[in-house]
Every structure is written in C-alpha cells, then in structure tokens.
Simulated assay, not measured.
Amino acid sequence: MISPQPAETKARRRGKPIEVWVNDEEKSQIAIRAKECGLSRSGYLRAVGLNYPVRSVVDLAAVTDLAKVNGDLGRVAGLLKLMLLEKRGQGERAIDVHALMVEFRELQGEVRAIMSKVVYEGK
C-alpha cells in the first residue's frame, strides 16, 4: 500500500496589513526582538498583538548549553567515582569523596532548576 503524499506546506495567506507608527529606535528594537524569537517582524507583532507566547531563541540556546553542562557534571562525577573505587584506600577519605559527590548532585539540581525556570517561565 502506498502512503499518501504529505500535504505541501503553504505560505500563510496574506490578509490586510495594519499600520503601526514607530520611530527608528522602536523599529530597530522590534526587529531585534523578532530576530531573538526567530520570527519575522510581522510574525512577532502578530504573536504579541494576539497574546501568543513568544520565546527567545537566546533563552532556548541557554537551556541547551545548560543541559550540556549538566551532562558534563554527571560524567565528571561518574569518572571521579570510578577512579576512586579503583584506588580504594589511596588519596581522599571516603567521607570527603561522598561530600564531593553530594555537591555534584546539588549542582546538577541547580542547573535543572535554571533550565526549568527558563523553559516554563518563557511560555
């Protein structure tokens, strides 16, 4: 059985323009904010005017960076734990190692909390 072809994506049907009078500085700020959201100026103003959520691409990029750092923290903690298990009795006391591992987990929790705040408050 042959599956149906996906419907072609159609460009948004143009309606009627709305004139908004702004000075050069305001126009520049609107252009910057639209770009930060990955939208055209028209798309940005439409979304804001209709009270749709607009999300900054910069915020989402920050969340992606934080997710990478969170993963790196987890890998470093795992490697540290593995290294210490292989060299049991040498180097640091077990209680100090445990405290360090707890600190790693707390840092991961803080990173996740920041990511959640950016993602959910941005909606």
Rank of each mutant, 00 (worst) to 15 (best):
V118R: 01
A62I: 00
V57N: 07
L66W: 12
L84G: 02
S116Q: 13
V20I: 06
V111D: 09
I95M: 06
L73C: 08
S42H: 08
A67P: 02
V20Q: 08
G15S: 07
I95V: 07
V54K: 01
Y44N: 00
T64G: 04
G109L: 05
L39F: 13
M115R: 12
L82C: 00
E36Y: 07
N70G: 13
K27S: 14
G71N: 14
I30F: 11
R88D: 09
Y120E: 13
S28P: 04
L107T: 05
E121Q: 09
G109M: 07
L84Y: 15
L39S: 01
V76I: 13
E26F: 13
T64C: 05
A11N: 09
R33D: 12
A11R: 10
Y52R: 04
K81C: 06
A77E: 03
E121D: 12
K117G: 05
L100K: 09
L39I: 03
V118C: 02
F104V: 01
L45G: 03
L100Q: 08
G43E: 15
R75P: 01
Q90D: 08
N23Q: 07
P4A: 09
A7D: 14
S56E: 00
R13C: 04
A61C: 00
K35W: 14
L85D: 11
P17D: 12
V69C: 09
N70D: 14
D65V: 02
G43P: 00
P4W: 14
R75H: 15
Y44F: 15
A62D: 14
K10A: 11
E19S: 05
D59V: 01
